[in-house]
Each structure stands twice: as structure tokens, then as C-alpha cells.
Amino acid sequence: MSDEPLLKVENLHVHFATRRGLLASRRRMGQVKAVDGVSFEVASGEAFGIVGESGSGKSTIAASVMRLLRPTAGRILIDGLDITHLSEAALRPLRREVQMVFQDTKSSLNPYLTVEQIVREPLITYGLPSDRVRILEILARVGLGEAHIDRYSNQLSGGQRQRIGIARAIALSPRLIVADEPVSALDVSIQAQILNLLRSLRKELGLGFVLISHDISVVSYFCQRVGVMYLGRLVEQGPTASVMRQPSHPYTKALISAVPGRFGARAERRILLRGEAPDPISPPRGCAFHTRCPVKMGSICETFPPPYHRTAGGGWAACHLLSSQSQIAESQAGKVMI
């Protein structure tokens, strides 16, 4: 298992049945392919970022990696061990290794428990020492202390609550953290504190991260590699610096250029996409982006799903425009290629 990456996601598909009508449970109407063939890898001490807009499938990937959902197809491997179909009992020791940090700290912390009780819960679950001294040790790791341990979550600020969420996640000494929009609800000065904390955990404890965010600047700061989601698929993946400075996929270009102010393109150079993302219940044929693509070529884009082409920056992008670049097999799409 030594050469295996910490997390490997292979050709992941998560489909949901859609139902309609009052007797909803009876009638299956169709299916939403929330995640439709996604592959990536994360090494220890590395942060992989997933950017994309609402409904692109980012959070469904998070829930699948946590095995809160059972994937429709594909595999999820932790240290080379296939966890895709493990039973709850068999998953239990693995749950220690993979923990999650949520966006909404109000709803993800139990309001009836004190900070001490919240952080103690996972320790009790796994029969680990959970005296007050141990809890204080964990709290110190996230920059909290005696002053906070007896409080309830609603007595804390948003930034402090997110620190509790992180303390709970690291209490079991996991190796991988799945963070779903961990700083989206926070003011910019607090966001910086939390990103610095996550960064020190990654560097000092060697934790791996899957960081999901709609905010390109957060991902580009925190993550070494990044994948861009559109309608359930990764359309581009590669080292963050090269994806950000030399995006290859037209959607990545538009997404980066849409960042307002000095961080994106100047207003007059901005690529404005027409319309909004199509309904994932009936995604467009061919390349799913062709309905909004400013550089669509024609029938090839409307008919054939684009293959993965290597990009100059050491990643890949799924776009017919790159057909002069060499192709890579779908099974290799998750591999780190640097």
C-alpha cells in the first residue's frame, strides 16, 4: 500500500432518481447524474481543490468520499483499500481516518452541547481518552482554550464555531479532511484566520485535504492541485498555479475571468457566459458546456463528449479545441501528472 495515494477516486458516478407527483415514492421519472465520471487523487499533506458553481456536483463528491452516499458506479479508495461498498461496520475504523468540516457552523454543531462535549463525542465513540486535559490539547491546536471550553456554540462567533468544527474533525487524528465550503460564511478577516489554521494543519500534521469551494481565490491560495466541475464532470484538472494562470478549458477561462476586481480579468476583457447552467436532469448531449461555450466549434461539440487532452501546464482538460494535444485514457484521468 506504500505507493497508493491517500485518496483515490476512480470514475465516480452518483445518480439520483427523480420523482414527480403527490405519490412521489411510486413514480420514477428519470435520473439526475449529479456526479458523472469523476477521477482524482490526493496525497498525504496535499490539498486538492474542487471549484464549480451551485449544482455542479461538488458536495455530492464530498458526501461520496465520506461514504454518506453510496456511489452508483466507480471506486473510492483510501490507502488503496476500496471502500465503495464496505458495510457500515467495516467502514467504522476508516471513519477515523477521514473527517469532514462543514460550511454552516450553526447547523453542524449541536446547540445543546458545550464545546467540551462536542469535541469529546468522537473520542468517546472510538473509546479514546477524553478527559478535560485532552480536550484542551485539541482546542489549543485550533487556537481556543479554557475561555471557550464550557460555552455553547451559540455563544461563540462564526470564526470560533468553525474552529470547533475543525477541532472535532481533528480530534481523532485523521489523515484526510474533506472541507465543504469551510470559509464561505465568514468575513474576510476571519476567513484568513481559518485558512491559516487549515494551512498549518496541512503542513504540520501532514493532513490531506479535499477542499470544496465556489471561490477561486480560496482554492488557488490553499490547494496545490485543482479540478474544475461543470454539470457533474471535471472539465479541467492540474496544478493550481498552471490552471489559474494558463487555463485551457473555455469554462475555466470564463470562471476565472468572472472573478470581480483586480483578482480576475479587467471588466472589458471579461468573458461573459450566456445564460445559466442547464438543468442536470437533461444535460446537453456531447460536451455539456456547449450551450454556453463562447468558442463552440459546431456539431462535434454538440455530438461527442470531449476526450481528455493534456495541457501545457501538466494537467488535462476535456475540450475538443485541444485535439492537437495528446489524449489520455479515461482511466488515467485521476492520476497526478506533473
Binding site: V188, S189, A192, L195, S217, Y221, F222, V259
Partner: peptide, 9 residues
């Protein structure tokens, strides 16, 4: 200085 875009990782 707090803005993530102001620094590299």
C-alpha cells in the same frame, strides 16, 4: 492582506 488572492499558498 487578508484576501486569499493576495498571497500564494
Amino acid at each position: 492582506g487578508c484576501m486569499p488572492a493576495a498571497r500564494d499558498g
